[in-house]
Structure formats: structure tokens, C-alpha cells
Design a protein around this nucleic acid. Structure first.
Ligand SMILES: [Mn+2]
Ligand SMILES: [Mn+2]
Ligand SMILES: [Zn+2]
Ligand SMILES: [Zn+2]
Lengths: 138, 138
DNA sequence: AGAACTGTGCAACAGAAGTGCATTTTAATG
DNA sequence: CATTAAAATGCACTTCTGTTGCACAGTTCT
């Protein structure tokens, strides 16, 4: 049983061939991926399968979905200890307008916001847009 | 010339009948509106016209587009003095999971975030999700 | 009035997301 | 190992939002 298989097993996700491939693919990237990205990476893969795989991964706490404002959902592997399932890992995300990549800034949590009377916060999403570290050097 | 006509004129938007209606509609709501909302409000209106009207309004600084994480673009009238055109009015938005309304919290600006070395911020989007003031009272 | 420009309506398209159902694969059981 | 139930996959199709091209209508200017 490989490391990845163990990881999937721990989160009660059955380690099928496709799931292992997808997990491996995401683990090898340093930025969030869209469904279409995976689709293009494995051209024999079915969109529906990928779609449902990501959904399963998310439900079981293996990945978290990111809304970076591009109207295309992105996904990133959760780091060990990430509690995003219960909205307790509110790190921010950065979207680069140059290379179009979206990255997790897991060390940077969303600051607490004082809302007006009557408003109850349950979740938050903060996306910074600009030029990423890699693009700003060239 | 009515107030609305003056407002449009000031922003160099020609005050056609449809535009005045749309502006009036948005001014009468206390939450952000989606294209479909307007479409439903004026059932004889053409989707394309509304789409392009909102685009024009946005380009001329009459409204700003809001990404509240629902994957449906919302629009809200800019308040006088709003500098959202140049990404200088970074107020936050609140989306209620109960009534599904999105509101501008124009008094609440997005706090400054220290990014890692190399990252250059140009814009930011902060959406708080939860229960709105109106829904939390019932 | 005529020309030039702007706005509107209609049709069609693109892309992402999502669903129903039949088939295949997996994992568990005897 | 064969059986079987549950889970995963593949295919087809739908919906929704956003977007564009083009012809026509309305407006503005000379
Ligand atoms: Mn993340
Ligand atoms: Mn706003
Ligand atoms: Zn970049
Ligand atoms: Zn509400």
C-alpha cells in the first residue's frame, strides 16, 4: 500500500486507479487545479468521473474547493491538519492575473471582521488578486 | 431632467428608457441584483440588453460587480464617492445563506494583508457568509 | 433630411456544472 | 475461487450563466 493509498484509506475514500492518479496529479502541482486542468492532463478521463471524484475528495476532507473569482472552481489538496471541512481553516487565496494560477496561502488566515449588529458570520472567503511571486521576478 | 437622468448624464451614460428603469430598479433594492433578477422584474426585457446595460454601467462607474461565491455575478449601485473603478473601494460583501441576498458593507473595508515576499496585491475580494441582519431576527 | 453613431432585439454559441441510468469494477462474504 | 452487493465509472443529456455577431431601430449632429 503506497503513501497515497494510505492517505485515501485514512479518509475513507476507496483508492481506485483514477483517484490515485488524480491525487498524484494534484500533489505534484503547487497551485490549485480546475476540473478542466485534470481533464486535459488525462485526456482519456471522463469529465463526470473527475467531477464526482473531486466532489468525493471534498466531502471526505481531502481537498478544498476554492472560489478565486474566475467563475471556475479550483481545488487544492488539504494540508495535514487542515480543518476546512468545518470552516475552521480560513486561509486566504491568491490569484495571479499574469499566469492565472491560484495558490493557497495557508499561513495567512483571514482576519476577524467586526460585522454590524445582527449579522452572523459562518464562513469567509478572501482572495487577493495581483502578481504572484513567480511572475513578479521576470 | 430627473435625478436619475442627471446621475447617468454625469457618468456619461446616455439615459435611455431601459437604462433609467434598470437604474431605478437597482436603487429600490437594498441588496445586490443578478442579471436574472432584473430579467424577471421586467419580463419584456431582453437578456442581452440588460447584460450590456450592466456592463456599460460598470465601465462608467455607476455599478460594481460582486462575486459573492454563488457563481452568479451580482451588481450593486456605487455610492457617491465610491472609487471601485480603480480598485480603491475595497469594502466587503456579505452573503446570507438563508435569504440568499448579498449586500454591500460599504463601511467595512478589507483589512490590509501582509503577503509573502514577491507577491504583489492589486485587488482583493472578501465575502463573509452567514445569516444577515434581517434573517437573524426571525 | 441624411449621415454617423449608439442602443436594442434576436439568434446562436461556449463553458461549467450537474443528473439519470446502464455498465463495470471493487471489496466483502461464504 | 465464485457470488453478490455496493460503489465507481462512462455516456448522454440538460440547465444555467455569460457572451458574441448581426441586423434593425433610435438618436444625435450637420
Ligand atoms: Mn486553500
Ligand atoms: Mn459592494
Ligand atoms: Zn503568476
Ligand atoms: Zn438573509
Amino acid at each position: 500500500m503506497t503513501e497515497i493509498e494510505k492517505t485515501l484509506h485514512n479518509k475513507r475514500v476507496r483508492p481506485t486507479a483514477m483517484r490515485i492518479l488524480i491525487y498524484k496529479y494534484m500533489a505534484g502541482k503547487n497551485s490549485a487545479v480546475a476540473l478542466t486542468d485534470i481533464e486535459n492532463a488525462f485526456d482519456k478521463a471522463e469529465r463526470t468521473t473527475l467531477y464526482r471524484t473531486l466532489k468525493t475528495f471534498e466531502e471526505k476532507g481531502l481537498v478544498h474547493q476554492i472560489d478565486d473569482g474566475t467563475n471556475v472552481s479550483k481545488f487544492a489538496l488539504c494540508e495535514p491538519g487542515c480543518n476546512c471541512e468545518i470552516d475552521q481553516d480560513l486561509h486566504l487565496h491568491f490569484h495571479c492575473g499574469n499566469c492565472d494560477k491560484t495558490v493557497c496561502l495557508t499561513e495567512h488566515k483571514i482576519p476577524h471582521i467586526n460585522l454590524p449588529q445582527g449579522y452572523i458570520a459562518e464562513d469567509a472567503n478572501l482572495v487577493i488578486k495581483g502578481i504572484c511571486e513567480s511572475c513578479s521576478q521576470h
